[in-house]
Nucleic acid binder design. Sequence first.
RNA 1: GGGGUGGUGGCGCAAUUGGUUAGCGCACCGGACUGUCGAUCCGGUGGUCGCGGGUUCGAAUCCCGUCCACCCCGCCA
Length: 604
Amino acid sequence: MHLYRTHTCNQLRATDAGATVKLSGWIFRMRDHGGILFIDLRDHYGLTQVVVHPSRPFFDTLSKARLETVVTVVGEVTLREPATVNPDIATGEVELVANECLVEAASEQTPLYLPGDEDGAEDLRLKYRFLDLRRGRIHNNILLRSKIISFLRKAMEAHGFNEYQTPILTCSSPEGARDYLVPSRVHHGKFYALPQAPQLFKQLLMVAGFDRYFQIAPCFRDEDARADRSPGEFYQLDMEMSFVTQDDVFAVVEDVVSKTFAAFSKKTVDPTPWIRIPYRESMLKYGSDKPDLRIPIEMFDCSELFKASGFNAFAAAVKAGAVVRALPVKGIKDKPRSFFDKLVEHAKSLGSKGLAYLVWDGDAVKGPIQKFLTPDELATLAQMGGAQDGDVLFFVCDAADKAAKIGGDLRVKLGRDLELINKDVFRFCWIVDFPMFEKDPETGAVIFSHNPFSMPQGGMEALCGKDPLDILAFQYDVVCNGIELSSGAIRNHLPEIMYKAFEIAGYGPEVVEEKFSCLLNAFKYGAPPHGGIAPGVDRMVMLLAGEDNIREVIAFPMNQKAQDLMMNAPSEVTEKQLRELHIKIRGRDLHLATTGDLPIAHQP
RNA sequence: GGGGUGGUGGCGCAAUUGGUUAGCGCACCGGACUGUCGAUCCGGUGGUCGCGGGUUCGAAUCCCGUCCACCCCGCCA
């Protein structure tokens, strides 16, 4: 018989009755009846009830053992009486009557109570992550993550992609987020950087002729956390393809992602092809470039109507360049006054000067601004917003970008507060036609709005002939239920277009050559037209696990301040290590005084 | 860097809004119990109410400061 087990804790069935078997696992729960002891033995696979009779020599030891003690039990698989079958567990028809028992490893009282459904404080869960991970929900999340990643790899390979690895120690990039830096011992004063994404490497793999690349790629960005953004590192299903159009990239992603979502969730997944929403339309209708399509509210512009109206507050603002955006909401005329007042307050907290609204009540239209509008204007608004008896139109008036943002926030808040969000669906869309350039709101200069390496739609002709602010890029996002899953682009693979694009953004050729010499150099030797995308693995798992926080699908996440409370990272290092790396910590004494840590050797 | 919410035995929470000895559930310890499966029953240990000041006859509660955690904004090509 094996030293530890002949079966797992999820294996025994009625057909095994009579067999002598060995199980190993943790004591999950115990029910001590004095004359008989029941133990729920747990391992990765499941639970099995172990029965211990008082005649056994190990009865006292086990009845005093703490929960989470690891034991090995030999016994006979026994059918349970019909009345005592437990239908809630897979092994519930049988139980293991213990004949021998060995305590493999005792447990102290755990700082987290594992059988309960209470979470415990976040920092405690992170400090004792190895215990937290024993709990069913999160244990299954991590297992789900493993299965999803395996599924993604197979799906990508089925599309003819091969997985290639790229460096973790690379160089700092001038674009994008803050880098994590790694000092060089050999090269005084120089640093490696951890890659924010394998962007350059995957493009170079295309130049190298590999045609179809993918990688479950670790990405490192020194940015602050959010509920859907773990600090430090995250994973992308990174991919790049040669000789493709935007539609080719979409076809691969739609197939791989929708199959993955269908395979790992019972929720309804949008059929492919997913709808494509131009960026500007998305900002107008949803006030966001990551719209939650589950919310049945679509904004519309009514600036012109208000400009010509007798509502002077709006009319004057529109004449001064503002816009008016309306949010139509169905059937809420009977909401109490406090509902509307709170929403107005919420709008103000977002920076809006106020929030106007009209209520369609029977044949009448009511609301604070009704008296400023003519019956014709009200009728036009009703038609524009499809307003009928019971419906309400909210109006935000502000500069276009601010109005979009405030309206978008209100749209999501209304969707949540009014419970308009269908929890049983995954709604996907593509956001396409991102602008190539935008105006810096402070300086007024033309700058890249997203990725400077995207191919401008219309190519060189567009760059030379069009107003830069009207040029669109072959750049796209995948959005699912209001969460940005992925961002990608058809790349600019032509040096002359790259020079021209950077020129428009105010950079001379010497800047391009200095900052992006590697890519530029590679493109001088015949680069294939190529493009790609990189869906976020953590976010996909989060959606599929039904979790609202990304830490719940990461085995060992850091906290909001990018600390690993279990490993105590980041940590101080010795003076010797710093000297080897030619590094001197600035303001160290001040730092030590505030943290209360003991000072280590000072520099001479 | 800014805003919000919170911090009370090991864990999750309460304390009637300033008033008796700070309670409850789980865990833990002791006892009872041969069919439970979140076992049950009886008894018990455990708290500087995050920390430091202040107001008051009296502070978990009010004020000021500070630390920590989470959520959001900024940031994330």
